[in-house]
Design a protein around this nucleic acid. Structure first.
Lengths: 230, 230
DNA sequence: ACCTGAACACCGTTCAAGT
DNA sequence: ACCTGAACACCGTTCAAGT
């Protein structure tokens, strides 16, 4: 039997008013933030409702009060990444589009798990705001009708394709493996003569540099004038 | 006790030499074929080692004698899809590249689950053979050095980005949902004025048409001459 | 309204054992 | 060499129950 009087003395009660303090309550925003952190640290295959809950110090089943499925969490995480892409302030349409797309790619590569999750239609508010800005910029540049649709799709496809490809290399953080792939190709130079001798997988020029050079050409091709004159 | 003499008479033995007939033995090729079929029918989220085994009439654990992990199966399935892309016979470099890329996209869209699996480095023999052909074609067209790398990456990124995007719409086989997305955007025309009025998601022109128009421009931009003259 | 606990119907993979 | 059966350590999700 414990001493009853202990509970009569305010200061002796165990953490009285500020007692269990359930930390801040759960919310969709907190869930998404935790998901992004977990994905950044451990990648997509380690993200589990149970691990996510653990990080938030709740039961895994608690998440389902705020979120309908795990897929919802992933969709929200992708949109969160797009939220990191600033809306450009440039006035020249070409440089506005250019900056947007460069930053878009950069955001996805900062979170290399994100390109793999682009499989579902991208309809989050942050995605749509960026696509809206892109297309509005193209309209300002004088594009209309099918030319406008072609340009919008082409530009976003270039970014997504790049992100997908380049991210796949960044995810395998083993740098020696890239070299091994190089040797693998060169070792079959009879099968892949061009790839072997062009140094396809060497990093003579960086991913980023090759991307912007390609992007500039697409911007030309799509009718956004030539490289920015100054 | 059964009559012993029955087993002495050849014709009375139960299915004597051609007895249990374990069907054809398992093999990596059979596993991959079954995986592609399963993916085509039920999509990526339903592909399970257990279901795959069931389709092949073996135990799920039997698969692991032929294959190291489920990821191996997926990698092989992707490479199988690329194997469906014919190597063009056109002599003109521009049309050779064009045909390759159009067929490449078509193959991925016939198997709409495949773009989602492009997350890992593409190093299968069928992929490499197509990339080798593409780059060899670009060399024939006179590209070298960084221009060659830029063009190779840009073109494959355009195809991958397109496949990713367009496949995501084909996977949700619910056609009314596309219309619903259209209404969703138009319903927020104050937020997305350009998207709402440009009919971004209407299918005025088909995916395929928008793609080839974009592709032709990229081919121009990359230094492959202008549209095929005839 | 918000969270817990127990439970269901699954997973991928390992490994000893059979033939 | 090739396959089975049992088992391990997980999953996502539902639902009654607590506060």
């Amino acid at each position: 039997m414990t001493d009853q009087r202990a509970n009569d003395v305010l200061w002796l009660r165990d953490r009285p008013t500020a007692a269990p303090r359930k930390a801040e309550p759960l919310s969709v925003a907190r869930i998404v933030a935790a998901a992004v952190a977990e994905l950044d640290e451990h990648g997509v295959e380690r993200l589990t409702m149970r691990r996510l809950a653990q990080r938030l110090e709740v039961t895994s089943t608690a998440l389902y009060w705020h979120v309908r499925t795990k897929e919802d969490v992933l969709d929200l995480a992708v949109d969160h990444v797009l939220g990191e892409v600033p809306i450009p302030t440039e006035t020249d349409p070409r440089s506005a589009a250019r900056v947007l797309l460069v930053d878009w790619r950069a955001a996805m590569l900062r979170h290399p798990w994100s390109p793999t999750l682009l499989g579902r239609p991208l309809l989050g508010p942050n995605v749509l705001a960026r696509v809206e800005f892109l297309q509005a910029t193209l309209v300002r540049a004088g594009l209309v009708g099918d030319d406008l649709q072609v340009a919008t799709k082409l530009l976003s496809n270039v970014v997504i394709g790049t992100a997908m490809n380049d991210a796949s290399w960044r995810r395998l953080d083993n740098p020696s493996l890239v070299a091994e792939v190089g040797r693998f190709i060169v070792g079959q130079r009879d099968r892949y003569p061009t790839l072997a001798s062009s140094g396809f997988l060497d990093d003579g020029s960086s991913d980023d540099e090759l991307f912007v050079r390609g992007l500039d050409r697409v911007l030309d091709a799509v009718g956004l004038g030539c490289a920015p004159r100054r």
